[in-house]
């Protein structure tokens, strides 16, 4: 079980998530992203590519720790964790 905190940029594409408290079941970062995708179908492909890897300029933090396994998202997520998904800032 984790509380999910999303960059507001994702609310442009998934406005139904804005202002909602997002609590998702899962023991790994992968399960959290999959759980998020069940709440908002399609969002998993925004966060990860079609091989399930975290996209290059997207970051995921578990209790303030940056995810280590960007390829398979096996990092454990403890009970009552806070998970942040955000993007690298870039110009243009």
């Amino acid at each position: 079980m984790a509380r999910l905190h999303l960059t507001r940029h994702l609310f442009v594409f998934f406005p139904q998530l804005e202002g909602r408290e997002l609590v998702v079941n899962g023991n790994t970062a992968r399960e959290i992203v999959d759980g998020l995708d069940a709440v908002a179908p399609g969002i998993g492909l925004y966060v990860c590519d079609e091989r399930g890897r975290l996209r290059t300029h997207v970051n995921l933090f578990i209790d303030k720790q940056m995810v280590k396994d960007r390829r398979a998202l096996t990092d454990p997520v403890g009970a009552d964790a806070d998970v942040h998904i955000l993007q690298a800032l870039s110009g243009g």
Partner: peptide, 8 residues
Amino acid sequence: GHGHWGAK
């Protein structure tokens, strides 16, 4: 081409 979020 979303950049961060991939091509859609």
